[in-house]
Deep mutational scan, measured.
Amino acid sequence: GIDPFTGEAIAKFNFNGDTQVEMSFRKGERITLLRQVDENWYEGRIPGTSRQGIFPITYVDVIKRPL
């Protein structure tokens, strides 16, 4: 089901994660935001896939912030 505490964002740019914990994505992908890790990073996942990880806040347009 849908978790009411998650947020939502759209990727503004392609992001290629450097490490296992970073999640790569392509511009235009819809991302579920799980939490804000710190002032620069979100943790999120791509709905319908097993992809999950952290990524820079500046790479996405936030539609709804996670609670």
Rank of each mutant, 00 (worst) to 15 (best):
G1T: 11
G1N: 12
G1V: 12
G1H: 11
G1R: 09
G1F: 09
G1Y: 09
G1C: 15
I2S: 14
I2W: 13
D3T: 10
D3V: 13
D3A: 11
D3Y: 10
D3K: 10
D3H: 09
P4H: 14
P4E: 13
P4Q: 13
P4G: 12
F5Y: 14
F5A: 10
F5Q: 15
F5C: 15
F5G: 12
F5K: 13
F5T: 12
T6N: 14
T6K: 09
T6M: 07
T6Y: 12
G7F: 09
G7Q: 09
G7H: 14
G7M: 09
E8R: 07
E8H: 09
E8D: 08
E8W: 13
E8T: 10
E8M: 12
E8F: 13
E8L: 14
A9Q: 02
A9V: 05
A9N: 01
A9P: 00
A9R: 02
A9F: 04
A9E: 01
A9I: 04
A9T: 03
A9M: 03
A9K: 02
I10N: 03
I10S: 03
I10A: 03
I10V: 12
A11E: 00
A11Y: 01
A11C: 04
A11R: 00
K12S: 06
K12Y: 03
K12N: 08
K12V: 09
K12D: 02
K12F: 04
K12G: 03
K12C: 09
K12T: 07
F13I: 11
F13R: 10
F13M: 14
F13H: 12
F13N: 09
F13P: 00
F13A: 13
N14W: 05
N14C: 08
N14P: 08
N14Y: 05
N14R: 05
N14T: 12
F15G: 00
F15S: 01
F15M: 02
F15K: 01
F15A: 00
F15E: 00
F15L: 02
N16K: 11
N16W: 15
N16P: 06
N16S: 11
N16C: 15
G17L: 03
G17R: 05
G17S: 10
G17D: 03
G17E: 03
G17W: 02
G17F: 02
G17I: 03
G17K: 05
D18Q: 14
D18S: 12
D18A: 14
D18M: 13
D18W: 10
D18V: 14
D18G: 11
T19L: 10
T19D: 13
T19W: 07
Q20H: 12
Q20F: 12
Q20V: 13
Q20I: 14
Q20P: 14
Q20L: 13
Q20W: 12
V21I: 13
V21C: 15
V21H: 14
V21W: 15
V21S: 13
E22S: 07
E22H: 12
E22K: 08
E22I: 04
E22P: 02
E22T: 07
E22R: 05
M23D: 01
M23T: 02
M23E: 01
M23I: 07
M23N: 01
M23Y: 01
M23R: 01
M23L: 14
M23A: 02
M23C: 03
M23W: 03
S24E: 04
S24A: 08
S24T: 08
S24L: 02
S24R: 05
F25L: 06
F25V: 04
F25M: 04
F25N: 01
F25K: 01
F25T: 01
F25Y: 01
R26T: 14
R26Y: 11
R26E: 14
R26F: 13
R26C: 15
R26A: 13
K27R: 10
K27I: 14
K27Y: 07
K27Q: 12
K27S: 09
K27E: 14
K27W: 05
G28E: 03
G28S: 05
G28Y: 05
G28F: 05
G28A: 03
E29N: 02
E29R: 02
E29I: 02
E29S: 03
E29Y: 01
E29L: 02
R30H: 11
R30G: 05
R30T: 11
R30S: 08
R30K: 12
R30M: 11
I31N: 00
I31Y: 00
I31E: 00
I31W: 00
I31H: 00
I31G: 00
T32A: 08
T32K: 08
T32Q: 11
T32S: 08
L33D: 05
L33I: 09
L33F: 04
L33E: 04
L34W: 06
L34Y: 06
L34M: 08
L34A: 03
L34I: 12
R35N: 07
R35L: 07
R35T: 10
R35M: 07
R35A: 08
R35S: 08
R35W: 11
R35P: 01
Q36M: 08
Q36N: 06
Q36D: 04
Q36I: 09
Q36V: 08
Q36A: 08
V37Y: 08
V37K: 05
V37C: 11
V37H: 06
V37S: 03
V37N: 02
V37P: 03
V37I: 13
V37G: 02
D38N: 12
D38T: 07
D38A: 09
D38F: 08
E39L: 09
E39T: 09
E39Q: 10
E39A: 11
E39Y: 09
E39C: 15
E39P: 10
N40D: 13
N40I: 14
N40G: 11
N40Y: 15
N40V: 13
N40R: 10
N40E: 13
N40C: 15
W41V: 04
W41L: 07
W41C: 10
W41F: 08
W41T: 10
W41M: 08
W41I: 05
W41Y: 10
W41K: 05
W41P: 00
W41A: 04
Y42A: 07
Y42N: 01
Y42G: 03
Y42C: 07
Y42S: 03
Y42E: 01
Y42L: 10
E43S: 07
E43Y: 14
E43P: 00
E43G: 03
E43W: 13
G44H: 00
G44I: 01
G44T: 01
G44N: 00
G44E: 00
R45T: 10
R45L: 12
R45A: 11
R45N: 08
R45I: 10
I46D: 00
I46W: 01
I46M: 05
I46F: 04
I46P: 00
I46L: 04
I46S: 02
I46Q: 01
P47K: 09
P47F: 10
P47R: 09
P47L: 10
P47H: 10
P47G: 08
P47Y: 09
P47S: 09
P47N: 10
G48Y: 07
G48D: 08
G48E: 07
G48R: 06
G48W: 06
G48H: 09
G48I: 02
G48A: 06
T49M: 03
T49L: 03
T49S: 09
T49K: 03
T49A: 05
S50N: 13
S50V: 09
S50Q: 11
S50F: 10
R51V: 04
R51K: 07
R51A: 04
R51M: 04
R51C: 04
R51Q: 05
Q52A: 09
Q52K: 12
Q52T: 09
Q52H: 13
Q52Y: 10
Q52I: 09
G53Y: 01
G53A: 01
G53S: 01
G53C: 02
G53H: 00
G53L: 02
G53N: 00
G53Q: 01
I54F: 11
I54D: 01
I54P: 01
I54A: 03
I54C: 12
I54T: 06
I54Q: 06
I54H: 06
I54N: 05
I54W: 07
F55C: 01
F55N: 00
F55G: 01
F55D: 00
F55M: 02
P56S: 02
P56L: 07
P56R: 03
I57P: 05
I57S: 11
I57C: 11
I57A: 14
I57M: 09
I57R: 08
I57D: 06
T58W: 14
T58H: 12
T58V: 12
Y59Q: 06
Y59V: 09
Y59I: 05
Y59E: 04
Y59G: 03
Y59A: 12
V60H: 00
V60C: 06
V60W: 01
V60D: 00
V60G: 02
V60I: 13
D61I: 15
D61G: 04
D61K: 14
D61A: 10
D61F: 14
D61P: 00
D61E: 14
V62Q: 04
V62R: 04
V62D: 02
V62Y: 04
V62M: 06
V62T: 08
V62C: 05
V62P: 05
I63A: 05
I63K: 06
I63H: 05
I63S: 06
I63G: 04
I63D: 04
K64Q: 05
K64F: 06
K64E: 11
K64L: 06
R65Y: 15
R65F: 15
R65D: 15
R65T: 14
R65I: 15
R65H: 15
R65S: 15
R65P: 15
R65Q: 15
R65N: 14
R65W: 15
P66W: 03
P66L: 09
P66G: 09
P66S: 09
P66Q: 08
P66N: 10
P66A: 07
L67H: 15
L67T: 15
L67W: 04
L67R: 15
L67S: 15
